[in-house]
């Protein structure tokens, strides 16, 4: 039976790990390679690295970090942040990334999804969608949640699937950083309208929240950062708890 995935997310700035609370103030939570090895050895199913640096040499720095990570870990990992072209994707995959996640660039140029999928395969193309619920409607946001668009979350999700995305990583801006649980209602709706895996992100605070997102939200995977980085939840304990709740996990 296919298991539900637990995915720690590492935000990277200038080669260091950071985690934003509501995407604004940042805390340092360690060295990315060391953290990655720690997670790979402690039952993480995958890792996501999100680069939020904005320097000129960011592409080079990131490619070097990706190669360093690929040499050291034996589980799959996704790299995202500022990816805007097929060339960016090629560089990261060539240095050992398994998947890339694209966000703003996909909204600005949807055909990028198809270009990535046809050149490297859908399996490596994760489309990240940040959305905020405003007046009962889920609106897609860009630039780490700062810029609203007119796109509806569910319509956009269906579109990215048809363009060739392999997975959707959905972050609820209303839930991110709150530790009050995932956006399960929206997640369940997403899962029912697309046929590709959906990764839940934003709001993890307790083990129960993960259970809820797998059952109520029908998520295929759940992503979290600070609860793992600050050791509030150990992945092994979380998986034991999930298994006791009859949720299939790799333990």
């Amino acid at each position: 039976m296919l298991t539900k995935r637990i995915i720690p997310c590492l935000d990277i700035k200038n080669g260091r790990t950071v985690k934003g609370v509501n995407f604004v103030d940042l805390k340092d939570a360690g060295d990315p390679v060391e953290l990655a090895i720690h997670y790979a050895e402690n039952l993480a199913d995958e890792l996501v690295f999100l680069d939020i640096s904005a320097t000129e040499e960011r592409r080079k720095t990131l490619a070097k970090l990706v190669e360093d990570i690929a040499q050291h870990i034996n589980i799959p990992f996704t790299v995202g942040g500022g990816i805007a072209s097929v060339k960016d994707v090629e560089l990261l995959l060539k240095h050992g990334a398994d998947k890339v996640s694209i966000n703003s660039a996909a909204v600005k140029k949807p055909s990028l999804i198809t270009e990535i999928a046809s050149q490297f395969g859908s399996q490596c193309c994760v489309v990240a969608i940040d959305a905020k619920q405003i007046d009962n409607e889920w609106k897609v946001h860009l630039v780490g949640g700062k810029q609203a668009t007119s796109l509806n979350l569910f319509e956009w999700a269906k579109q990215v699937e048809s363009l060739g995305a392999g997975e959707i990583l959905f972050t609820s801006m209303n839930h991110d950083g709150t530790k009050n649980g995932f956006a399960n209602e929206a997640l369940a709706k997403l899962s029912s309208i697309v046929n590709i895996p959906v990764i839940a992100s934003g709001g993890a605070g307790t083990k129960q929240h993960f259970k809820d997102t797998f059952i109520l939200g029908q998520a295929d995977a759940a992503l979290a950062a600070s609860v793992f980085h600050f050791k509030e939840i150990q992945i092994k304990d979380l998986k034991t708890y999930l298994l006791n709740s009859k949720i299939p996990v790799r333990l």
């Binding site: 039976m1 296919l2 298991t3 539900k4 995935r5 199913d45 859908s122 399996q123 392999g166 997975e167 046929n195 590709i196 895996p197 295929d220 995977a221 790799r250």
Partner: peptide
Amino acid sequence: LKVPQVGWNA
């Protein structure tokens, strides 16, 4: 089934 299958299977 979701397609592709993505993840760890026994």
